[in-house]
Simulated assay, not measured.
Amino acid sequence: MATTAASAVGREHTGSFFRHWTTFGPLTVGMKGVVDAMIVGDARTVVRKAGEDALSPKVWKSTGRPSDDNWNRHRMDVARAHARTGDLAAAMDELTGVRRASPQWLRHQHVAAVTMQEILKKRKRTLTAEMRDMASYLGVVG
């Protein structure tokens, strides 16, 4: 039903009261589908859906931009999914991108710390400088 409604709206709609509470459209619905896959533990579906053009910043020109909170949470789900599927470089890319966009927000996200812990546990070689820096930034020891 949400997909049908979002399709009818056609663009991200932003209400005037607290933007992150009232954003709705095709991107928001697509991102919530990614959240659903992450909740049930289907990391492969998260990675697949996140790679679709419909969720890419390329489409923002035609559909509008999602709220920063929604986009950042989406990227955290994608980072965690990459870590779970073993693509640690892609997971780090997502974390680094969110850090660049919203450094203070990222520092307070539990899922970011948990994702970094997963990366540290799965890393078979010496940690990269980027990994050490991110772990320190998030207060993760491992």
Results as ranks from 00 to 15, higher is better:
residue 20 H to V: 09
residue 24 F to N: 02
residue 63 T to L: 12
residue 141 V to C: 11
residue 104 Q to K: 15
residue 132 R to S: 12
residue 125 R to H: 13
residue 110 H to G: 04
residue 135 A to L: 01
residue 7 S to M: 06
residue 72 N to W: 11
residue 80 R to V: 08
residue 127 L to D: 07
residue 123 R to N: 13
residue 70 N to W: 06
residue 88 L to G: 05
residue 61 K to D: 14
residue 37 A to L: 01
residue 103 P to E: 12
residue 79 A to K: 00
residue 55 L to F: 01
residue 49 K to S: 11
residue 97 G to L: 01
residue 96 T to I: 04
residue 75 R to W: 07
residue 124 K to S: 15
residue 54 A to F: 13
residue 16 S to H: 14
residue 2 A to H: 04
residue 112 A to I: 01
residue 89 A to F: 12
residue 77 D to F: 03
residue 22 T to H: 09
residue 58 K to C: 08
residue 99 R to Y: 08
residue 19 R to C: 11
residue 87 D to A: 10
residue 27 L to G: 01
residue 78 V to F: 02
residue 102 S to M: 13
residue 11 R to I: 08
residue 100 R to G: 14
residue 59 V to P: 04
residue 112 A to M: 03
residue 140 V to L: 04
residue 55 L to V: 05
residue 63 T to K: 08
residue 60 W to S: 05
residue 114 V to D: 08
residue 62 S to Y: 12
residue 16 S to I: 01
residue 74 H to N: 10
residue 122 K to W: 03
residue 37 A to P: 14
residue 85 T to E: 10
residue 142 G to Q: 06
residue 28 T to P: 08
residue 3 T to A: 15
residue 83 A to D: 05
residue 82 H to P: 09
residue 3 T to Y: 11
residue 110 H to I: 11
residue 106 L to Q: 01
residue 121 K to L: 13
residue 99 R to S: 03
residue 95 L to P: 02
residue 86 G to A: 10
residue 13 H to F: 15
residue 84 R to S: 07
residue 12 E to A: 07
residue 133 D to R: 06
residue 98 V to E: 06
residue 131 M to W: 03
residue 96 T to K: 10
residue 7 S to F: 11
residue 27 L to Q: 07
residue 39 I to W: 09
residue 50 A to G: 10
residue 88 L to Y: 05
residue 58 K to Q: 12
residue 126 T to C: 11
residue 109 Q to V: 07
residue 125 R to N: 13
residue 40 V to G: 07
residue 25 G to W: 00
residue 60 W to I: 01
residue 99 R to F: 09
residue 9 V to W: 02
residue 32 K to T: 05
residue 74 H to M: 12
residue 99 R to E: 12
residue 109 Q to T: 05
residue 82 H to S: 07
residue 134 M to L: 14
residue 110 H to C: 06
residue 2 A to V: 06
residue 141 V to G: 12
residue 117 Q to C: 07
residue 86 G to M: 10
residue 80 R to L: 10
residue 62 S to V: 09
residue 78 V to A: 08
residue 88 L to V: 05
